[in-house]
Amino acid sequence: MTWADIGALDDIPAQGARVVKTAAGCVAVFRTADDRVFAMADQCPHKGGPLSEGIVHGTSVTCPLHAWVFSLESGEAQGPDAGAVATFAVRIEAGRILLDMRRLARRVAA
């Protein structure tokens, strides 16, 4: 299974985020003002701030600890700061949010 159903779109406030726990660490799932979703590691490359708690504006998020700004699309830090966060594919189907688990799931021996 590569796409995991993590919840309904309405579980995430518009211009907000929720966290999903995975074997590869916490993933922040963002919802923009116009109902797009994005997923990225919930850890700022600066000092580990929880990006899920940042202010979401357009398709960017501002880290709550020291205000670095990241593109939700590419995971790249914007402006003068250098660094990037891992992003993961996520999509909406019939109001449900599906997260691509290929790089997040624990592999088990068959």
Binding site: I6, V20, K21, L104
Partner: peptide
């Protein structure tokens, strides 16, 4: 519920 994680997939296994 809104204060907890949206989902816990730590035990999710890939095929």
């Amino acid at each position: 519920a809104k204060w907890a994680a949206l989902a816990d997939l730590t035990l999710e296994a890939a095929e």
